[in-house]
Amino acid sequence: MATTAAGRVRTVTGAAVLAALILVIAFGNPAYTDWAKNHTSNDAWGFFLKQLAWPTWSFSSDDSVRTILANDIKAILLVVLTGVFVSLMVAAGAPRSARLFFSSWGAYVFAAASAGLLAAFVQVDASLRGSFGWAAGGGIYGLFVGWVLAIVVLASRK
């Protein structure tokens, strides 16, 4: 999955890691995190802007050392695990079972989030912000339950 362009080698995994790193640096930094917390509304756009700050990181803060360390580790792990999971899904040399497991799990997370997003528009007083909340709930469900589906898919392969 590598292509050469102007003497450089680009891979799908490298692109994913670079994109994850840029997102974490740009939107997880203390300045953006504070801005999103204090200057966004509770509508759909504000919800999205606050979600961008989830992988928050800091070198100094009023928080405890453990909280700062946990947040920094979360941001680092997000970038590293992005590389690991993307490489497992696209690498031809990766075991088929690993690719099948992670792609099935990821598909369930995406399906649950999409189902929440779309179904929210059926309810009374539907709103874009409300649909984001339903999508978030679906994503959380898919994350914590999707491994069950992945095991079933893995067990059912021929």
Rank of each mutant, 00 (worst) to 15 (best):
I22T: 12
I22R: 00
I22C: 13
I22M: 13
V24I: 12
V24K: 09
V24N: 07
I25E: 00
I25Q: 01
I25A: 15
A26K: 03
A26I: 07
A26D: 01
A26E: 05
A26M: 14
G28Y: 02
N29A: 04
N29E: 08
P30N: 04
P30T: 05
A31P: 00
A31T: 14
Y32N: 02
Y32M: 03
T33Y: 13
D34V: 06
D34R: 11
W35N: 07
W35P: 03
A36P: 10
K37M: 08
K37C: 00
N38E: 14
N38A: 15
N38H: 08
N38C: 00
H39D: 14
H39N: 15
H39W: 11
T40Y: 04
T40Q: 13
T40A: 07
S41Y: 03
S41I: 00
N42M: 11
N42C: 00
D43L: 05
W45C: 01
W45Y: 09
W45L: 15
F47E: 13
F47G: 11
F47C: 02
L49A: 14
Q51D: 09
Q51A: 09
Q51K: 03
L52K: 10
L52Q: 09
L52Y: 04
L52W: 04
L52R: 08
A53I: 06
W54S: 13
P55I: 07
P55H: 07
P55D: 06
P55M: 09
T56C: 05
T56Y: 09
T56M: 08
T56E: 13
T56F: 10
T56Q: 11
